[in-house]
Simulated scan of single mutants.
Amino acid sequence: MKFLNLKTKPFPNQMQILSSKSILVLLSFVLIVTHCKASEPTPSPKEPPYFSGNDFDPVWTNHPKEDSKLKQIPNSLILTEHTGKQINFQELESKERLVVFFYATCRGICPLITRNLLQIEPSLSEFPDLKLVSISINPKEDTVPVLQKYKLNYKIQNPNWSFYTGEESIITKFAKETCGAEMEGFSTERGKYEFVHTENIFLFDKDQYLRGIYRAKGTGDIQRLVEDLRKLRTRNLTKAF
């Protein structure tokens, strides 16, 4: 006696529907994973990070122009050099720059930062076109003649080291929003409002993006700065080929 085989096979249409659903699920999974990977700031040992947003989060990307939150020298940064020449930083030639903030009458950290930069100049000798930028946070008093005298007093011979003054609002905005530098505050010790500012050195790449923040006190961060400059140069050479 033969028994009927009650096992049924899906019709061809059902097979197609199941296959289509499986493909859609798989594609959705791939897209989600890809999106997550693309949005995560994966550290790269080959280059220094960019910095993004209000918290200056480190970000590694091959397409910085697609991220408007990255810290970059703004078009509004127009300052006056110690030579008396007005400079638009966005129009400057494509060079890496180290930026520090100071003021000429400072008796605290400013002389220390300036002397430290003088001290580390030999370490930066392998980057002959590196620009050093000292921006006054007291532009009302630090006029062009004052900047010239300051440069002379410290016997600064490096032609790539420039000092700048300008509009206070422009400098303050750049320091706070682009560099994350504290510009001024109230001194409880002296009981008056006076300048309090950052001791950091800020590295900007050839495309004006912020790529590194280093302590100017001592020499502990200087080796890291030199290594980051080397990474930027290597990356630029790789892109050229």
Rank of each mutant, 00 (worst) to 15 (best):
L98M: 12
T80Q: 03
N88G: 11
L70Y: 02
K69L: 15
K69V: 15
L92I: 10
I73M: 08
I73D: 04
R97H: 09
E81Q: 15
S76E: 07
I73N: 01
K69F: 10
E93H: 08
G84N: 13
E93Q: 03
K95P: 01
G84F: 06
I87S: 02
K65L: 10
Q72Y: 01
E91R: 10
V99T: 04
V100R: 02
K69T: 15
E91K: 14
R97S: 12
F89C: 11
Q86D: 09
S94H: 03
T83F: 09
L77I: 06
S68R: 05
F89H: 13
I87K: 02
Q72C: 15
L98Y: 00
S94C: 07
K71Y: 02
S94A: 01
V99C: 11
I87W: 00
K95S: 01
S94K: 08
Q86F: 04
I87F: 00
E93V: 09
Q72V: 07
I78K: 03
Q90Y: 06
Q90M: 12
T83D: 14
L77G: 00
Q72D: 07
E91F: 01
I78R: 06
Q90A: 14
E96Q: 12
I87T: 07
L77H: 00
P74Y: 02
I73Q: 10
T83L: 11
V100D: 07
K85E: 08
Q86V: 15
